[in-house]
Nucleic acid binder design. Structure first.
Lengths: 196, 196
DNA sequence: GTTATAATGTAGGCGTCGTCAACAAACAGG
DNA sequence: CCTGTTTGTTGACGACGCCTACATTATAAC
């Protein structure tokens, strides 16, 4: 029986892993530093050696989330023509939110008050945003549409998929069987490329 | 000096008023029943005579929010042609979110786990949704577009404005002066009627 | 190797919160 | 007036974030 040593050895990753599990089970507000510490088998104040406070731990989780989202967007980035890629990007964004709703809420919600306080989180978020922008730009170029900056179309496309994802995970869209919901997601995420 | 009587007299509205103020200042998670009770000048457990718990109080606030949103949408419902009305409806939705971000977050966020537990809130939410649907339906009719149900276009329009509102109040869209932001909002909310 | 120093973990406590049980005051209908 | 119900109060429980003071271990300079 390995009795536990005074020092954990890799507490920071252990805390992040436990906290990520708690996050996905119960959401950020119900996640407690104390419970994450319990899962790692350390005292309730040990986490403060690795994170400035609860918000800093959440910010680290959010950064991981943005990295995973970025990866998911990259995976569909080279499929078919620009219109298809844009559609697939939107679909991947919504799929990510549906697969990990609590993480998604944390990434975009108010629990992390100012991302600029957490450079790692900010950078990871910008990485994900750049994938969206790239897909929109490529689409515009393929349609020979020229704009000074792609900001307005990028925000439009982002709003569309972000709004759909938010409404879905917050249970605002009800009374649909699974199949109809899938078609709905395809229709909405495709709206930007198919036009009105 | 009127010393306070044992019975407050109208505690329920007083609690709602105080809680609404706290909500808009600090957000739902930081709002405490105890502080609302303090503002009303009663003991910390008095609110339990009028609300089953914190969530029930929040649900009542959310219901008020949906009623105000409904009113705001009704105010722009009869302006100009159907396309203009739809655009104005979207703009009013975003304006509401910007004017009362914490209330907006509460209305659509996860603090109220299941609206069906709070019929007043559910009904108020459906009232607001019906205004959105009506505007979309009128627009489709004006363009002689026939659909079996307006669900897909309604959800599309809703996603667009809801996503934009969410991104704005969660500070995801930065580095813009006020003027540019206003044009951005006009462009995004108009996207549904102007087409891609 | 010994020893100073930094890193990492613990113990205990403060003030806050949501909620519950038990009790007290005021109102309302007979 | 008397009685039952409504509406308040008091006091407590467990959980939380976070703080200070202290203990243990790793690190590295000599």
């Amino acid at each position: 029986m390995a009795k536990k040593p005074y020092h954990h050895g890799s507490l920071r990753p252990a805390l992040l892993a436990g906290a990520m599990e708690l996050l996905e089970q119960k959401g950020a507000p119900s996640l407690s530093l104390r419970e994450a510490a319990r899962m790692a088998g350390v005292s309730q104040t040990a986490p403060y050696r690795h994170f400035a406070g609860k918000e800093a731990l959440l910010a680290a989780l959010a950064a991981r989330g943005f990295e995973e989202l970025t990866r998911a967007l990259d995976e569909v980035a080279a499929t078919g023509n620009a219109a298809e890629t844009l559609h697939a990007t939107g679909r991947a964004y919504v799929d990510f939110a549906l697969a990990r709703p609590q993480l998604f809420r944390l990434m975009f919600g108010p629990e992390i008050r100012d991302k600029s306080v957490f450079p790692e989180t900010l950078e990871a978020a910008q990485g994900a945003y750049s994938r969206l922008t790239a897909a929109v730009e490529a689409y515009l170029a393929s349609r020979r549409i020229h704009v000074k900056t792609p900001r307005v179309p990028a925000v439009t496309a982002w709003s569309l998929v972000h709004g759909l994802a938010s409404l879905l995970i917050d249970n605002q869209i009800t009374d649909m069987e699974e199949d109809g919901k899938n078609r709905l997601i395809d229709a909405v995420t495709g709206f930007f490329v198919t036009g009105g």
